[in-house]
């Protein structure tokens, strides 16, 4: 599939680079399918580029990259929407925080991470109704040696 994006130019995305959102992303009702575009340049950053509205792209980062203590307790309805079964590999569930840029810094939304089942590429923006989670958590890379071994 070819996506013509003002930011990335013409992007060729194979089926395994696409994700399908099973619920509306708040604020973007017309965007259900996205393609992964690696930012590269020696960063772990990745873009989610909208297939339906290619002018829309989200900058994302796995919370592991900056906050190994980001705990998740996935509710059953969410695993159901992602069609993840208890016999499936736990590693097929991946998390990505949407990043916002403000005053020359990057901030991660930890209230509403993107959860993806890598096996079937179903995705949901999970709104965690937990008052302690920050909407804008400053993103600072971790020392690779200090990474959580898990």
């Amino acid at each position: 599939m070819r996506i013509d994006s003002p930011r990335f130019g013409s992007v060729e995305a194979t089926e395994d680079q696409l994700v399908q959102f099973e619920r509306t992303i708040p604020g973007f009702p017309g965007c259900r399918r996205f393609a992964w575009v690696d930012h590269g340049r020696e960063t772990p950053l990745r873009w989610l580029l909208s297939v339906e509205q290619p002018e829309v792209a989200f900058l994302t980062l796995e919370p592991d990259q900056f906050l190994p203590s980001y705990d998740v307790d996935l509710p059953e309805w969410l695993l159901g929407v992602l069609e993840w079964k208890p016999t499936d590999d736990w590693n097929s569930i991946a998390f990505f925080a949407l990043l916002t840029s403000q005053d020359g810094e990057l901030f991660a939304n930890l209230v509403a991470p993107i959860v993806v089942n890598l096996r079937n590429r179903r995705a949901v923006q999970w709104i965690r109704d937990e008052p302690h989670l920050p909407l804008r958590h400053p993103v600072r890379p971790l020392d690779p040696e200090a990474r959580d071994p898990f």
């Binding site: 708040p26 930012h39 792209a57 900058l59 990043l99 209230v111 923006q125 909407l135």
Partner: peptide
Amino acid sequence: LIQKENREAATSTTELDPT
């Protein structure tokens, strides 16, 4: 709140090179 933050995430990075 999430609606607003999602829109901000998209627009604040449109022209940004995060490298």
